[in-house]
Design a binder for these strands. Structure first.
Lengths: 114, 114
DNA sequence: TCTTCATATGAGCATTTGTTCATATATTAA
DNA sequence: TTAATATATGAACAAATGCTCATATGAAGA
């Protein structure tokens, strides 16, 4: 890595920090989770099933969106293993899968509310 | 709100959950912070100044991006009050402003590393 | 079997996003 | 004042995103 191309750069500080930067793959994984929560519609879906499971239609009602839009978003959340589902006849119930996401959400809720 | 348009909807459960959903403005604020961390390049910038302040050129070196790209991203992070800066002559040093973001990042780091 | 209901998915489209490139601003030194 | 350095910003553009609409799938009941 080219480190000394500018006068303002403190080589030691830069090398020190470079050592602490996670691998790109880890950064991408972190970013993926944040991206899942970064869209207000998708975040609202996650908030809707934070305390209890709901079927797709219920989530759509709670979020004021179409079933289709919710289903598309749930697919993204499923792929990222943020939500899980269980079938009961025709109805599919969704709930949160990732404990870490739950605490992240609760922390963020605390933040905006205080 | 139209709640009973479908058979599968449990009205009580929906009303219960609706009470717990934050105001739209709060949801948007939460989403904004997550969005700030949702792009790998921007997340890397935040990670670069997690432990110590750096100037724009140093951040660019650490992140392997141009000064301009970094500057554009820092503007977004500044607007969201995630980073702060101080001037020292020609050089501007950036560091993290929001304590809550710091713990969110550390939590996320823990998550991907274990 | 045929219909209905709940959910999923593909294509298409408008909007947003992140980068590049050129240029502007601000500070320091000559 | 002029030149050099560090940072900021505007325009432009390619890529990604979230929604709609049409259609498909899968389960239950008539």
């Amino acid at each position: 890595m080219e480190i000394c191309s500018k006068n303002c750069i403190n080589k030691e500080k830069v090398e020190e920090t470079v050592k602490t930067i996670p691998a790109q793959e880890e950064i991408n994984q972190m970013a993926d989770i944040f991206k899942a929560l970064s869209d207000p519609s998708r975040l609202k879906i996650v908030l809707a099933i934070l305390n209890q499971e709901h079927c797709v239609c219920e989530i759509a009602t709670i979020c004021g969106q179409t079933d289709s839009a919710i289903s598309h978003q749930l697919r993204i959340l499923r792929t990222l293993k943020i939500v899980k589902n269980r079938r009961e006849g025709k109805v599919i119930y969704y709930s949160l899968e990732d404990e870490h996401v739950i605490s992240t959400i609760n922390m963020s809720l605390d933040h905006v509310r205080h």
